[in-house]
């Protein structure tokens, strides 16, 4: 057989082997078999010597061409197989994306404290500072300084936890008003958020522990109209522009005039629903102009300064915001509850 024919035949054979190689390993085997140092095709160079001088160039050319063609072919096949291998690898790595993600265990903020923080933000924006005072208070700051007469039915409403005659758990954050005013000359512009205690039987809507946010503004020319304005802004910030505040006369020893604060129910827009007990309003706290006796008690000039004070319960806001219907959940420490917020 002529050498060129042999070359042609090997080339045909190699071509089929390259195209038939199923993966990169098989292709390498093919390469070694034909193009390796001892590969069949390369071995043909040795045969060139056996040819007549004049036949050598042609056969050499044919051999070179066959090798380069095969190399090209192999290159092409190699990249196709590599691509295929990559695809297979990716396929093998494919995940079930519907399996749940590993959620980093970030803790949740308590809904009551989150609500309180939001309320604080509103008043910070209105120029109020945040003041704090003791939870275990003395009788003076709790009652005397707040103008509670010693033997007055108003004391019945307090239902206080006592440690002794003179020491008790504060039943309202109003005590902080006195603590601040004792330390500071007017103007005073503070809120006092915090924990309070009242001897209440615990049920779905009552608890002996609760949070309140007290506000106090004493300066020249502070009016009842300013109190209304401040709380209107607050209400709209919390429940949106549809919410308005209803003020009606009430009685607190430390304010005069005194007003109950009720917010229009934004669930029913005032037409009455289950949440507002059909009244269209939700009572959230008390307010009024600071009684001159209170101001005089801390040495303020009552002819020069007037002020307002208000106190709102925080539980109510948190319950409305999240649709929580049992106040005891706040204090349960139940993970199933806490992780919802």
């Amino acid at each position: 057989m002529e050498l060129t024919e042999t070359i042609e035949q090997i080339q045909q054979e190699a071509r089929a082997a390259v195209l038939g190689a199923a993966d990169l390993g098989a292709l390498e085997e093919v390469r070694v078999k034909y193009l390796g140092r001892n590969g069949t095709l390369r071995q043909q160079y040795k045969q060139l010597g056996t040819l007549a001088q004049e036949d050598r160039p042609l056969a050499g050319q044919a051999l070179n061409k066959a090798i380069s063609t095969l190399e090209r072919l192999m290159e092409g096949r190699k990249s196709a197989l590599a691509e295929q291998a990559e695809q297979q690898k990716l396929q093998a790595e494919a995940l079930d994306v519907t399996l749940p993600g590993r959620v980093p265990a970030i803790g949740h903020q308590h809904p009551l404290l989150a609500t309180m923080e939001e309320m604080i933000e509103i008043f910070l924006g209105l120029g109020f500072m945040v003041a704090e005072g003791p939870e275990v208070e003395d009788y003076h700051h709790s009652f005397e300084a707040l103008n509670y007469p010693e033997y007055h039915p108003a004391m019945d409403e307090q239902d206080t936890f006592y440690v002794s005659d003179q020491v008790l758990l504060r039943s309202q954050t109003s005590t902080v008003q006195i603590r601040v005013m004792e330390q500071q000359e007017p103007p005073v512009r503070i809120i006092a958020p915090g924990r309070c205690y009242r001897r209440d039987t615990v049920d779905a809507t009552h608890c002996h522990t609760f949070y309140q946010l007290e506000g106090l503004l004493v300066d020249k020319g502070i009016t009842f109209a300013d109190l209304k304005g401040t709380l209107e802004i607050f209400a709209r910030q919390v429940f949106g522009d549809r919410c308005h505040v209803r003020f009606r006369p009430d009685f607190f020893p430390f304010t005069e005039p005194s007003a109950e604060i009720a917010l229009s129910c934004t669930l029913c827009d005032g037409s009455g629903c289950r949440v507002c007990s059909g009244t269209g309003y939700l009572e959230v706290g008390g307010s009024g102009q600071v009684d001159p006796n209170v101001l005089a008690g801390v040495g303020y000039d009552t002819e020069k300064y007037t002020g307002y004070a208000f106190g709102v319960g925080i539980e109510r806001f948190a319950m409305l915001r999240h649709g929580i219907d049992d106040i005891r959940l706040f204090y349960s420490g139940d993970m199933r509850f806490l992780e919802q917020f």
Partner: peptide, 16 residues
């Protein structure tokens, strides 16, 4: 009480 005007306290002397 509803007829008393609604105003915003004027002298803002500090940022909260």
């Amino acid at each position: 009480y509803q007829k008393i005007p609604t105003t915003v306290p004027g002298r803002l002397i500090q940022s909260g």
